[in-house]
Computed example of a mutant assay.
Amino acid sequence: MSRPVILTCALTGAGDTTGKSEHVPVTPEQIAADAIAAARAGASVVHIHVRDVETGQGSRDNALYREVVRLVGESDVDPVINLTAGMGGDLFVDPSNPTTHLPGTDLVSGLERLSHVEELRPEMCTIDCGSLNFGEGSQLYVSTPDMLREGAARIRELGVKPEMEIFDTGQLWFANVMVEEGLLAPPPLYQLCMGIPYGAPADTGLLHAMVNLLPEGAEFTSFALGRNQMKWVAQSVLLGGHVRVGLEDNLYLSKGVKATNAQLVERAAGIIGDLGETVATPDQARDILQIERNGGHR
């Protein structure tokens, strides 16, 4: 019997990709249109960042989230809405004077990162499970154990399902601690994020090892960046997990051919089917993750 696999589409992210592909959505209308197209192509879940409409850079503006959610909600599709709650953790330091914050820093408390989640009460939101040297230069992503425990507890109070973003093995360790402490409603959902410099490398052996560290009863999904994106769809399905694709992680359908979000979803859905499984409907995803249609835990 085939297994329903949750297919998430990460629509736009916050990276500096808008100048690299004309398909990366920026405005609330464009992001919502891509969410709707991805859902029509088979996405069970749409993962939403928003961007400043003037600069194209990532934003924490509640009004932008509100508009995207409204437009998707008024459409003829009903994907699970997963809002990022990772914005507000960026710290750029002067290497010669680390107490000095450089331009680009956007650092707020863990609870302030949940402002739009507090307002909109989506079915899901993310929680980034640790700090990380984020690429070259002097950028850090800051997410401390105290911030995480406080944020996880508040997310549970709000009745929102957290997707724990895991960028390295130490973050997986801490996520398991939060599960042991009862901070998350069952089943815990892990997103194994691979290939982001300098987190966990996109290595299939490492993915297998991380899956083996998950607690009993956990659900997981995984992704890798760029040309590894579709390989990770297959790897994740074969290991019993769910999958994520989208322009947040990869801009290309094939070498030199720029993709749309809907095209990436269609390609991933084909891989899932070729492996003998089915793509979960949004309601099947809700059942698997034990979330209510309008938020709240079962």
Rank of each mutant, 00 (worst) to 15 (best):
residue 157 E to C: 14
residue 139 Q to E: 10
residue 115 S to F: 11
residue 141 Y to K: 00
residue 92 F to D: 06
residue 3 R to D: 13
residue 181 E to H: 00
residue 112 E to Q: 06
residue 220 F to S: 09
residue 61 D to L: 05
residue 237 V to K: 01
residue 19 G to L: 07
residue 227 R to G: 06
residue 177 V to R: 00
residue 14 A to H: 05
residue 283 D to V: 06
residue 224 A to N: 02
residue 211 V to A: 12
residue 230 M to C: 07
residue 267 R to C: 13
residue 200 A to N: 05
residue 108 V to E: 02
residue 187 P to K: 01
residue 192 L to M: 06
residue 181 E to C: 04
residue 89 G to E: 08
residue 282 P to R: 05
residue 60 R to F: 03
residue 113 R to L: 04
residue 230 M to Y: 09
residue 56 G to N: 01
residue 255 K to M: 13
residue 72 V to H: 05
residue 18 T to I: 15
residue 7 L to P: 08
residue 37 A to D: 13
residue 108 V to D: 03
residue 218 A to P: 05
residue 92 F to E: 04
residue 211 V to F: 06
residue 297 H to G: 08
residue 217 G to D: 03
residue 235 Q to W: 14
residue 204 T to K: 11
residue 48 I to W: 07
residue 269 A to E: 13
residue 97 N to W: 05
residue 175 A to R: 00
residue 124 M to Y: 09
residue 257 V to C: 04
residue 183 L to P: 11
residue 71 L to W: 15
residue 258 K to Y: 12
residue 131 S to R: 01
residue 49 H to R: 03
residue 128 D to K: 11
residue 167 F to Q: 04
residue 223 F to K: 04
residue 102 L to Q: 07
residue 262 A to N: 00
residue 274 D to G: 11
residue 83 L to P: 13
residue 167 F to L: 15
residue 42 G to S: 10
residue 46 V to P: 13
residue 56 G to F: 01
residue 158 L to Q: 06
residue 167 F to C: 12
residue 61 D to C: 00
residue 82 N to K: 09
residue 49 H to T: 01
residue 219 E to P: 14
residue 12 T to N: 15
residue 100 T to S: 06
residue 250 N to P: 03
residue 17 T to V: 02
residue 251 L to K: 02
residue 75 S to R: 03
residue 268 A to W: 00
residue 20 K to D: 14
residue 252 Y to P: 01
residue 29 E to M: 10
residue 107 L to G: 04
residue 250 N to R: 00
residue 296 G to P: 03
residue 253 L to Q: 08
residue 260 T to S: 14
residue 228 N to H: 13
residue 74 E to K: 02
residue 63 A to R: 15
residue 56 G to C: 01
residue 249 D to M: 10
residue 68 V to M: 07
residue 188 P to S: 01
residue 105 T to Y: 12
residue 88 G to V: 06
residue 124 M to G: 14
residue 11 L to K: 07
residue 119 E to S: 04
residue 210 M to L: 13
residue 92 F to P: 05
residue 184 L to E: 14
residue 150 E to G: 01
residue 291 I to M: 09
residue 38 A to S: 08
residue 107 L to V: 03
